[in-house]
Amino acid sequence: MKPIAPVAVLAAAYLLVPLLLGGNAYLMTLLVSALIIAGIALAWALLGNLGGMVSFGHAAFFGVGAYTSALLSMQAGLPVLLAIPLGGLGAALAAVAVLPALRLSGPYFALAILAYAHIFRILATELKSLTGGSAGILGIPGLPTLGGLELGSRNGQYLLVLTVVLAFIALYRAIWRSDYGLALRAMHDSEDATRVVGVNSTLLKAAMLFVSAFMTGTIGALNAHVINFLDPDYAFSGAWTIVPIAAAIFGGYRTLGGPLLGAIAVYLLDQLLFKALFPSGHQIILGVLLGAMILLSPNGLLPWISRRLQRRPATEVRHAAA
C-alpha cells in the first residue's frame, strides 16, 4: 500500500488535474499561483527548519529573481528557460548581502532580512533606467514551447511549476537526509555540541540561506514569465512573505509535504473564501490562522493529522516525513 500512495498522488497531479480541470482557466490559474506560493513556502521552511532562521523578507529574493530573469530575457535576449534559473542565481547572489546577518540571533536576523526586502523594493523603484521604475515592466516573454509541449498554456504552466516545486522538494529531501542535514537538524537545540565535533555551523547556515534564496528566486522568475508583468510594489510585496509563512506554518514547516499542502489549502481558501468574506482585508484570516496554529499546533496540521490517524510515536512520524 505504502509505495503506491506517492505514485498515485503524482499520477493524479500530473494526469488527472490537467485532464479534469484543464478546461477551467480560472481554477488552473489559481492552482499555478498556489504552487508559486508553495515554492516560496518550501524555501522559507527549509531555511527555518534546517537553518533555524525565521525570515520576514523572502519577498526580497522573490523580487530579485523575478527582475533578474525578466531583464535577462528582455534586454540580454536570453532564452526564458535559461533566464529562470539565472533568476534563482541572482537571488542567491543577493543573499551574499544578507550573509553578515547570519551572525545575528532570531529577531535580529528576521528583521534585518525584512530591511533588505524594503531596500530592494526601493532600489527597483529608483533604478528607473534598468527596471522601468514604479511603472514596471510590461510584456515579459512567456514560457516557450518545448518538444511540442506548450509551456505557456495553462496546463503547461501548471506542469512546469509543479515539476519545479517537486524538484525542490526532492532537493530539500536530499539535503535533509544527508550528513549535512543531520548536522543542521542537530544545530537547532545544540549548536555548541555540533561545533565541538567539527561542524562549521556558520558555513552550513549560509549554505541553507543560498539554497533558500535560489529556490525563492527561481519561483519568482517563473512567476514573472507566467504573468508577463512586474512592478516593484508587486514583485517585493509583503504578500510574498505573509502567505507562504501562513502556508508553511499551517501545513507544518518541519515536514517536507507541509508547505506544499499548506500552500494549496491556504491560497485556495484565501482566494475562494476569505476574499468573498472580506474583500479588502482578507489577510486578517491568514493572521488568525497563523496565531491559532502557533498556539494550538505549532508543528502544523500535517504532523497533527498523522498523529491522529496513525497514533505512531513522535520520532517515527518525523522519520516518515523525511
Binding site: D179, L182, A183, R185, D189, S190, D192, V197, G198
Partner: peptide, 23 residues
C-alpha cells in the same frame, strides 16, 4: 561537556556519524 550535550533530534548512531563525518 560536564552537562552532557547530545545532539538533539538525532539518534545515538547519528550523533556519532555527524561527529565522524565532520570531525
Amino acid at each position: 561537556f560536564q552537562i552532557p550535550q547530545p545532539m538533539h533530534e538525532l539518534t545515538v548512531r547519528e550523533n556519532l556519524r555527524v561527529a565522524q563525518r565532520f570531525g
